[in-house]
């Protein structure tokens, strides 16, 4: 007898699991104007946004960091999905989402938290960010952090540019950085 799980039963299980309180990480894949995104949340908040995701690899990485109970489940990600959708279609300027940055070292947390204060439509530089996070000489380190920002878009590393105003780099690719800065009206 060949039996396979129907889409409906699968959805019901994932929904029940998502509201069971037993997941370490729930994630979902989102189709957006800047490509497919993997968005993951823990019970503390948003913990990962990945461009061009490879789900199996991401699941492994998330399991190592937060616990093995990693499951694709739509409901826990709904709020992040809605806010990202609004932002990427120009209907939202600020995110109202909790983030889970517990795995980050203190200085990285300080940098990411300073970065969260850079408003929509503005930019800052790596050096300025380093200074605000209390280590004015750490511009290069800050550049590296940006590249490994676990929650791009929401923690807006696309708003960080070089001291000459050049875009420098972006973990998700420079074309995406450009697209986001264009969306915010920084680039025309």
């Amino acid at each position: 007898m060949t039996v396979s799980v129907s889409a409906d039963l699968d959805r019901k299980f994932r929904e029940a699991a998502g509201s069971s309180g037993d997941l370490d990480v729930a994630y979902d894949l989102l189709d957006t104007p800047i490509g497919e995104l993997l968005v993951a949340v823990t019970d503390r908040g948003l913990c990962r946004i990945s461009f061009d995701p490879e789900p199996e690899r991401e699941e492994e990485a998330l399991a190592q960091l937060y616990g093995t109970r990693v499951l694709r489940a739509a409901r826990p990600v709904d709020r992040a999905r809605r806010e990202l959708d609004e932002y990427l279609t120009g209907r939202r300027r600020e995110f109202d989402l909790a983030t889970d940055l517990r795995i980050e070292a203190p200085f990285r947390q300080a940098v990411l938290s300073e970065l969260g204060r850079v408003p929509y439509g503005a930019t800052t530089t790596y050096g300025e960010l380093a200074r605000r996070a209390g280590r004015p000489r750490a511009a290069r380190a800050v550049g590296t952090f940006m590249n490994r920002n676990p929650i791009p878009i929401v923690v807006p590393c696309h708003r960080v540019v070089g001291s000459t105003g050049s875009l420098v780099g972006y973990g998700g690719g420079l074309d995406r950085k450009e697209a986001l800065l264009r969306l915010e009206g920084v680039l025309v």
């Binding site: 799980v5 997941l23 399991a63």
Partner: peptide, 13 residues
């Protein structure tokens, strides 16, 4: 153990 998603997909049918 593997991530739960893998475990579930592997054994659900």
């Amino acid at each position: 153990a593997p991530p739960f998603e893998r475990f579930y997909l592997q054994h659900r049918d």
